[in-house]
């Protein structure tokens, strides 16, 4: 049985994009503390897009309402062009790509 004192707590991540009006929940990650969580959120959820505002909150600090709440939709950021499928020059006659 391994030592669980090495395990990092869970943080929820909220992002507001450059053209966004408010922060949106995009998921969670593990970090040892809030500062690390912020760094990790930038790496994982924004690929370090500079214009995005990030909030991280320890999951245990969130008070939730009753069932049937809806989580907001989130969209991935695209700061590197080779992440966009349209960038690759695949000839038109290759189907399903």
């Amino acid at each position: 049985m391994s030592d669980t004192s090495e395990d990092w707590p869970l943080y929820e991540v909220f992002l507001r994009g450059k053209r966004g009006l408010n922060h949106v929940h995009v998921g969670s990650l593990h970090a040892a503390d809030a500062q690390m969580a912020l760094h990790h959120a930038r790496d994982l959820y924004t690929r370090r897009n500079e214009g995005v505002s990030i909030w991280v909150v320890a999951s245990t600090d969130i008070t939730a309402s009753s069932p049937d709440e809806k989580d907001p939709f989130f969209a991935p950021s695209g700061d590197k062009v080779y992440r966009h499928p349209t960038f690759y020059a695949i000839p038109d006659n290759v189907p399903h790509m």
Partner: peptide, 13 residues
């Protein structure tokens, strides 16, 4: 200006 120009990726082409 990385964030403004989405097509920029220093030579992904």
């Amino acid at each position: 200006d990385v964030t403004e120009d989405q097509r920029w990726a220093f030579g992904a082409g």
